[in-house]
Amino acid sequence: MKRLLILLLMVFAAPAFAQDTMPPAPYAYRQLDNPAQEEKAQALMETLRCLKCQSQSIADSDAPMAGDMRSQVRERIAAGEDPEAIRAWLVERYGDYVSYAPRVTALTWPLFILPVVLLVLASLLLSRRFRKGGGE
């Protein structure tokens, strides 16, 4: 976890030499008035990766671009857009990297096969052991 802060250091350090002075985007630090919508937006923001900080979600970052992304997410949710549509829109632009929730694709299927493999392996292991042991 110590290294985590070093990552964070980088996050803070980057703007230290190149910091813009614009005020944050309208919804970067402002919640939506509708609590149900805000909850949706928050859930989505927690699973989008901050492109400037690499190891944080946009919900956990003070980087200006993360703020702009938050604002964009909230505005779109307020306009009635579906969270998954917003995610898809971002993935279309930045690739899978921007989303912490991997999709099932030709590239990522092993991630989703793994639990099945582990389950099969586990049941094989358990059943063999128990058959062996129990069948006295």
Partner: peptide, 19 residues
Amino acid sequence: LYPLVAEAMGAKVSVGPPY
């Protein structure tokens, strides 16, 4: 490790809490 596997195949993915 999977992001590393993906990079070896020339793509970038993130694996986070939703996984």
